[in-house]
């Protein structure tokens, strides 16, 4: 009897599923998204829980990866249609010939180099054995460190022998227990957590290094996906825009919604969401600035001459092209 029931249920499900597109009035398009979790990815989490993708006729298929490198490889092999990554990893891929472009800015967050050592006040105070943790070589944090090193120490690679690659949670644990590493180049919420420890302080921060805020993450889509499924592409951009707008208008509700997922209190989540410098925006910041520096320092071979080489039309339209000199929003693309 019981077996019968399961067989029937399966049959119903299978037939139901295969007929589904015909039954629904609006076409549903599948989109494969490299999903990540955390404060930085709040727009994705909000869009998912408020069913915003569905509203735009999208059926999101989430894929999770252990590292930024894996997200990038998934995009290249076509395992996912869109993913999120820092500008430097995006540019490294572009330089190596990945057929992809930036589809949107994603989030601007404070980034900083934290240490517990009172003697380290600037980059000059790092000694040969002092380890600086970054998430991976070629990450935003690594490139920022290189920028800072060039500025303060005269060479982009001056601190390359000090870096260790460690995932954020491990590095934060190591720094807080003062074991193994001297400093951690990190982002919220680890940045907030570490800075709340007594005696922990910033050695240098993103604004000092870059001159102004920049997109910590950008949305990246393959040209193939963008060209073949323009409607899905724009639906996706709109869905994310809606999620972001909702976040910016309803911080308190977002805090309540995400607190259980982060295993934090709503108050703490709220504090993090409203930390000075946090900005969920699809506007790109700093795309060209990173490219110019990375080319100069040898991390990539060629730098884009025009924005259109590395960004899709919605981004280009957003930034615009002012006659008679760069507009404000054009200027913030550069360092």
């Amino acid at each position: 009897m019981k077996k019968m029931f399961w067989v029937l249920l399966c049959l119903v499900l299978v037939t139901g599923w295969s007929f589904a597109p015909r039954i629904h009035s609006a076409p549903v398009e599948e989109i494969k998204i490299a999903g990540q979790f955390g404060l930085v990815y709040a727009p994705l989490m909000v869009a998912q829980s408020r069913k915003i993708f569905e509203k735009y006729g999208l059926k999101p298929v989430w894929k999770e990866y252990g590292s930024g490198g894996a997200v990038r490889e998934a995009l290249i092999s076509g395992e996912v249609d869109v993913g999120f990554m820092g500008i430097p990893p995006f540019l490294i891929g572009w330089d190596k010939g990945c057929q992809w472009k930036a589809a949107m800015g994603f989030v601007v967050v404070p980034v900083g180099l934290v240490t517990y050592d009172p003697n380290i006040k600037s980059l000059k105070d790092f000694k040969a054995g002092d380890k600086i943790a970054v998430p991976s070589p070629g990450s935003v944090q690594h490139i920022l460190l290189a920028m800072a090193a060039e500025k303060e120490l005269g060479s982009a690679t001056a601190l390359d022998n000090n870096i260790v690659a460690m995932p954020h949670p491990d590095a934060a644990a190591a720094l807080i227990s003062k074991k193994g590493i001297k400093a951690h180049f990190t982002t919220p919420p680890y940045l907030f957590e570490e800075l709340s420890q007594p005696g922990f302080h910033l050695v240098v921060d993103d604004i000092t290094i870059f001159g102004h805020p920049f997109s910590f993450n950008v949305g990246v889509a393959s040209e193939r996906f963008h060209d073949r499924r323009p409607v899905v592409y724009s639906s996706f951009v709109n869905a994310i825009s809606e999620a972001m707008a909702w976040i910016n208008a309803n911080k308190k509700a977002v805090a309540n919604l995400l607190a259980p997922e982060f295993k934090l209190t709503p108050e703490k989540t709220m504090a993090y969401l409203t930390w000075e410098g946090m900005n969920y925006t699809t506007a790109p910041y700093g795309l060209m600035g990173f490219a110019e520096f990375m080319q100069k320092a040898g991390y990539i071979k060629k730098a884009p001459q025009q924005m259109e080489e590395i960004a899709f039309e919605n981004v280009l339209a957003f930034v615009g092209s002012r006659a008679g000199g760069r507009s404000e929003i054009e200027k913030i693309q550069y360092k």
Binding site: R72, K131, N161
Partner: peptide, 18 residues
């Protein structure tokens, strides 16, 4: 650490720089 890494680190780094 970068300057002190062996072949494993070499492979790891090259992967991130694609």
């Amino acid at each position: 650490s970068g300057g002190e890494g062996g072949l494993g680190w070499f492979i790891y780094k090259k992967r991130f720089f694609m």
